[in-house]
Amino acid sequence: DRIFMTRTEALEFLLKAHQTAVDKIGHPSHKQTPADHAAIEALDRLLLDVRARRVDQFQINASAAQIIVTD
């Protein structure tokens, strides 16, 4: 599946995904793992790359739809 978004929409989408990941590892019942921190770092890099126009398409994980940034 493909989803087309403007750059602004894609950045909002990534910010929400980032916040969800941060909230998940901050929850008291969740045991933090290196994979959790790696996922947040990957989202940080992706946010910067989309914002800087170095990336025009991405996929958060293998089961997610491919996001295509349109400007």
Rank of each mutant, 00 (worst) to 15 (best):
D1C: 08
R2T: 15
R2W: 08
R2H: 15
R2S: 10
I3C: 05
I3R: 05
I3W: 06
I3H: 05
I3D: 02
F4S: 05
M5D: 00
M5E: 00
M5F: 03
M5N: 00
T6H: 03
T6D: 04
T6F: 02
R7D: 01
R7H: 10
R7Y: 14
R7L: 15
R7E: 03
T8N: 12
T8D: 14
T8M: 13
E9T: 03
E9D: 06
E9W: 01
A10V: 04
L11Q: 02
L11A: 03
L11D: 02
L11N: 02
E12I: 08
F13S: 02
L14F: 00
L14S: 00
L15A: 14
L15T: 14
K16R: 11
A17V: 13
A17G: 02
A17Y: 09
A17L: 14
A17E: 13
H18F: 15
H18Q: 10
H18M: 15
Q19R: 10
Q19M: 09
T20I: 14
T20H: 13
T20M: 15
T20N: 13
T20K: 14
T20V: 12
A21P: 01
A21V: 09
V22F: 06
V22P: 01
D23K: 12
D23R: 12
K24C: 05
I25H: 06
I25D: 04
I25L: 11
I25G: 05
I25Y: 06
I25R: 05
G26T: 14
G26D: 10
G26M: 15
G26A: 12
G26N: 15
H27T: 13
P28A: 11
P28H: 08
P28R: 07
S29V: 09
S29H: 11
K31T: 13
K31Y: 06
Q32V: 14
Q32W: 15
Q32F: 12
T33K: 07
T33P: 05
P34F: 08
P34Y: 06
P34S: 10
P34R: 10
P34M: 10
P34E: 12
A35E: 14
A35K: 09
A35L: 09
A35M: 10
A35V: 08
A35C: 05
A35P: 06
D36T: 05
D36F: 07
H37F: 14
H37C: 07
A38Y: 10
A38H: 09
A39N: 11
A39W: 14
I40A: 05
I40W: 03
E41C: 05
A42W: 13
A42R: 13
A42V: 12
L43D: 00
L43Q: 01
L43G: 00
L43F: 03
D44H: 15
D44I: 14
R45H: 08
R45C: 05
L46F: 02
L46G: 00
L46C: 02
L46K: 00
L46D: 00
L46Y: 01
L46M: 04
L47A: 04
L48I: 14
L48V: 14
L48Y: 04
L48C: 08
D49Y: 03
D49V: 03
D49G: 11
D49N: 06
V50S: 00
V50C: 02
R51N: 06
R51K: 13
R51D: 05
R51Y: 07
A52Y: 10
R53D: 06
R53M: 09
R53S: 11
R54K: 12
R54N: 06
R54W: 04
R54D: 04
V55K: 04
V55D: 01
V55L: 08
V55R: 04
V55I: 13
D56L: 08
D56W: 09
F58I: 03
F58L: 02
F58P: 00
Q59H: 08
I60A: 03
I60V: 07
N61E: 12
N61D: 12
A62N: 13
S63N: 13
S63K: 10
S63P: 06
S63V: 10
A64Y: 11
A65I: 15
A65S: 12
A65K: 10
Q66S: 09
I67M: 03
I67Q: 01
I68Y: 08
I68P: 01
I68N: 04
I68A: 03
I68H: 07
I68M: 06
I68Q: 05
V69W: 02
V69I: 15
V69P: 01
V69K: 01
D71T: 07
D71N: 06
